[in-house]
Amino acid sequence: MSGSSHVLRDRNGAAYLGAVVVSGFGTSAMMLVAGIWVMTLTKSTSLAALVTFLVWAPTLVGPVIGAVVDKVRQRCLRHQLHRVGRGRDSDSARRHP
Rank of each mutant, 00 (worst) to 15 (best):
L32G: 08
V21R: 04
T27P: 07
A14D: 09
S23A: 15
N12E: 13
S23N: 06
I36T: 13
S28G: 15
R11P: 12
V22R: 04
R11S: 09
F25G: 07
W37G: 12
R11L: 06
Y16E: 04
M39V: 13
G24K: 10
G35Q: 05
L8F: 14
M31I: 04
I36Q: 04
F25D: 00
L8Q: 14
V38C: 05
G26P: 10
I36M: 10
L17D: 05
R9S: 10
R11N: 06
F25Y: 08
A29L: 10
V7P: 08
A29E: 08
G35K: 03
M39L: 13
V20N: 10
M31Y: 04
W37P: 00
T27W: 14
A19V: 02
A29D: 03
A29S: 07
S28T: 12
G26S: 14
M30V: 01
A34L: 07
N12K: 14
A14M: 11
G26F: 15
A19W: 03
T27M: 13
V7W: 04
N12I: 07
W37R: 13
D10W: 14
A29F: 12
W37S: 14
T27E: 12
H6K: 11
G35E: 13
A14N: 12
M31Q: 11
M30K: 08
G35F: 05
S28H: 10
R11C: 05
M30Q: 04
I36N: 01
A34R: 08
L17M: 07
R9G: 11
S28V: 11
H6S: 10
G18C: 06
H6Y: 09
V38K: 07
Y16P: 07
L8D: 14
Y16V: 15
M30T: 03
L17C: 02
